[in-house]
Design a binder for these strands. Structure first.
Lengths: 107, 107
DNA sequence: TTTCATACCTAGATACTCTAGGTATAGAGC
DNA sequence: GCTCTATACCTAGAGTATCTAGGTATGAAA
């Protein structure tokens, strides 16, 4: 039984970071790992496609940056993305509450 | 952005019901719907394969029952399944805590 | 100059849910 | 008796998301 609680949620998680600060892909991977205390240690092959998906859907926008000498694509959340985040957050609250009910977690 | 928080978790959810009582597939679908207050309204095409998966892995065992006139396959959780449930529950606690951190949910 | 961390990317494998069918019986209503 | 609905099971294939496993390239450190 392989647990993959992440499925379908990564987009919302990325917006969760970007809602507070713009960041580039590699940075997002690290921030996600830090914020989750190591639980989300996602491969680049997962995160980059997700970012492209989010940009295509209009939730984030990107621009190339070279000020650090190294080329980076900086992602910024859009108003659309903020709305999507709020909606995703609500869906998560509802969902996690229900899982807690079924699994018998008191809180 | 399609939310599918369920992915990979259904097995643990089913064990969450079966840990308390044996049940047949159709019944599990209803119990899941009740317990989650409508949030988990899963199609049969999702649940039956998941049950077969769980049986194959040894987490549950089944037996045919006809006492109701209608044929039903009753599923029962095994000791292995109870262990898998505990492990899945722990994984969920860890995971949901981390999601809450990233999404900025206070609790 | 070699190695490692940074920084980006994609194709294909894998694995799950879901759609869309199928079969069959019990019971209710006419 | 007949029709309809709910019950109860099933599977093949579509769709989609993550992950594996590669690839390229640069800056900094050893």
């Amino acid at each position: 039984m392989k647990e993959n609680w992440n499925a379908g949620n990564l987009d919302t998680l990325l917006l969760g970071i970007l809602r507070q600060q713009s960041a580039h892909g590699y940075e997002l991977i690290q921030k996600l790992k830090e914020t989750s205390e190591g639980v989300f240690d996602l491969p680049e092959g997962t995160v980059y496609p997700s970012l492209h998906r989010l940009e295509k859907s209009g939730a984030i926008s990107s621009s190339w940056d070279s000020t650090s000498g190294r080329r980076r694509r900086i992602y910024e959340i859009t108003p659309n993305g903020r709305a999507a985040f709020q909606s995703g957050k609500k869906a998560w609250a509802k969902y996690s509450y229900s899982v807690n009910m079924v699994l018998g977690m008191s809180s």
